[in-house]
Design a protein around this nucleic acid. Sequence first.
DNA 1: TCTGGGGTCCTAGGACCC
DNA 2: TCTGGGGTCCTAGGACCC
Length: 427
Amino acid sequence: MSASIALIDCNNFYVSCERVFNPRLEGRPVVVLSNNDGCVVARSNEVRALGVGMGVPWFQIRALAEQHNIVALSSNYALYADMSNRVMAILSTFSPGQEVYSIDECFLDLGGFEHFGLARYAQTMRHRIRRLLGLPVCVGIASSKTLAKLANHVAKKRAAFDSVCDFGAFEPGELDRLLGEIEVGEVWGVGRRLAPRLGAMGIRTVLDLKRASPARIRQRFSVVLERTVAELNGVPCLGLEEVAPAKQQIVSSRSFGMPVLGLAELQQAVQSYTVRAALKLRRQHALAGAIHVFIRTNPFKQNAPQYSQGITLPLAAPTSDSITLSHGALQGLKTIYRAGFAYTKAGVMLAELIPANRRVPTLFDDPAQLARSTGLMQVLDRINLAYGQGTIKLAGEGLEQHWRMKSGRKSPCYTTRLAEVAVAHAG
DNA sequence: TCTGGGGTCCTAGGACCC
DNA sequence: TCTGGGGTCCTAGGACCC
């Protein structure tokens, strides 16, 4: 028997989360904006119907938004992450094999559950998530991950399927007919660059790609796309990754709320980002062997002088100490900084990560210093966890932080901050 | 005026070695 | 005038994802 893999995906996830706690948004056109209120990163169906694309800069659709009374919200990641955890916990009860693929999607291995009737089983998941959390989801089921993604797409787009589509229930000819109606760009792994190149070869629909010669695809493109062709033919090449692999790099970067010219403010920003990245590093019990810093001006502002530079510095020994990492980052920043530019973004990347318990002692180790550093970081993390991030900062992070990003339309942290829980009034 | 952030994998090409 | 070939390692860049 072939595999049965389900992909469960929340509809318009960020918008749906906002609607759970603010029912007045129901039925209205709503968008959620990226950090800095820059781009549209989630759209309600009403907004999609107006032709607003994903990732469109907010300022470009201001007039349209006004005309149609579109509600725009800053993103509230604490809320979405918490709701995501709840969704994933509910779904995990439907199968022992779960891969959490992103904040709003997961794969479930439904092998062995066929006797329930997979479509019916999926409807149970849907209804439970709707009832317990108030969130709408769609489910796609097929014999490979790539096909399950497509089945999910069909479940979303075609009302006749009632939000659940099981390719396994199709006759072979019937499935091919359907795949012949879907553009190749919808395939997982075919993005905006590959789709036109495939089109030029006469491969325009999913069915065309499914029937393409794997050898030719590999030769013209890569092994990655060759695997996609196999997956479309129901040959699974991508396994379920139930345990998230350890990260190979950790990035913290932000656009500024306003252009920054001086080194002093860049130093504050870079140090803040380093502290954030170091915290993520410690949370996954890892050490970084190198740190990369970058800064850049606004690439969209073509008539302004442009500068974009980064530098990678190896660390004397792998570490997760915020202070040591900050020293490295600031040293790198000094090297790449050039006066006379209006910077709009900076970032820090921790690389060459190793598990903390695999640290190899070096000649220059100072055991007392190492113990002090570990202890200090533990205290710092504990206090910031208890009293909120930023309660204790490094001096260089700055108190004013004029460069901080804009986020003026944020909803309350309904589920993660006691002071901000929703209050129901009776009578 | 105003354009996100955080990841992964693969490939091509250069450096270097024998 | 003539100036190898093959392997490995590393990095930058391109493609993709949400």
